[in-house]
Nucleic acid binder design. Structure first.
Length: 256
DNA sequence: GTTGAGCGTT
């Protein structure tokens, strides 16, 4: 039936991209295909989905083969009620390569990074922050999976705070003030027991807290760990803190 | 099960 998005972008050199907004969160490409295909030749349909849940984001991209058909679809399907919601069909403003489009047509005549302006968006919200400008330059201090775990929600849980990192090996709370003293104290201790660079073990407390041999539920334990380390960070024994400061230059973005 | 400005993938 519809193999859109299964093999990536087939050919975007002579296709016109249309942006479909205001669609329902359960509308799929299969539902839009027969609708847009009736007005022209649809070469590809893609609907961005969430990385965590996998749900649709509420908009889709329909690529036509010819501009006249795309224009007709825009004039015909723009304002049409789909699945009980009025959709908005218009020419895509940006291309898949984050480049400008010529009246909906994707232009591959992009020289180089000369047109790379991060000010493409006149105004961006939290949604843009999720994908940023697809630069993904935040990999300087974390892996690729890290941004998927600590990414902010689309707006549902704006109160979400990375406080569940008690056992996630993210001790970014101990740095910022007077860490040199603890660092020195812990460092001598660390050197005494092991001079190996294997101090990145995310479970150092295991040897210190053998009481729990079955950490099946780390929820309650997490809450308590955060409790006694939040108000008095200095009361924490310098025994279970392997990571001293992985990236001291990026601590201003989380600890604010 | 919810939400609603916006611009995209192997």
């Amino acid at each position: 039936m519809s193999h859109f998005g299964r093999s990536g972008p087939p050919d975007i050199t002579d296709t016109y991209s249309l942006l479909i907004l205001n669609i329902t969160f359960r509308t799929t490409a299969d539902d839009l295909f027969p609708l847009f295909d009736k007005y022209g030749k649809v070469v590809d349909i893609f609907i961005p989905k969430d990385r965590r849940t996998g749900d649709s984001r509420g908009f889709a991209f329909v690529r036509y083969k010819y501009a006249d058909e795309a224009q007709k679809a825009v004039d015909r399907l723009d304002g049409r009620v789909v699945d009980g919601r009025e959709i908005t069909v218009q020419f895509a403003k940006y291309g898949p390569n984050a480049e400008r489009i010529h009246k909906g047509r994707i232009s591959e005549s992009v020289p180089r990074s000369k047109y790379r302006s991060r000010s493409r968006s006149p105004h961006r919200r939290h949604r843009d922050d999720y994908y940023r400008d697809k630069d993904y330059r935040r990999r300087s201090r974390s892996r690729s999976y890290d941004r998927y775990e600590r990414d902010r929600y689309r707006g549902k849980e704006r109160d979400y705070r990375p406080r569940s990192r008690s056992h996630s090996a993210s001790p970014d709370y101990s740095k910022g003030r007077g860490r040199e003293r603890y660092d020195d104290d812990r460092r001598s201790n660390s050197r005494s027991m092991s001079a190996s660079p294997a101090r990145r073990s995310p479970s150092p407390r295991k040897s210190l807290s053998p009481r729990k041999a079955s950490p099946s539920r780390g929820g309650s334990a997490d809450r308590r760990s955060r409790d006694w380390q939040s108000p008095s960070p200095r009361s924490v024994s310098p025994r279970g803190r392997p990571a001293d400061s992985r990236s001291p230059s990026r601590n201003s973005d989380v600890d604010e």
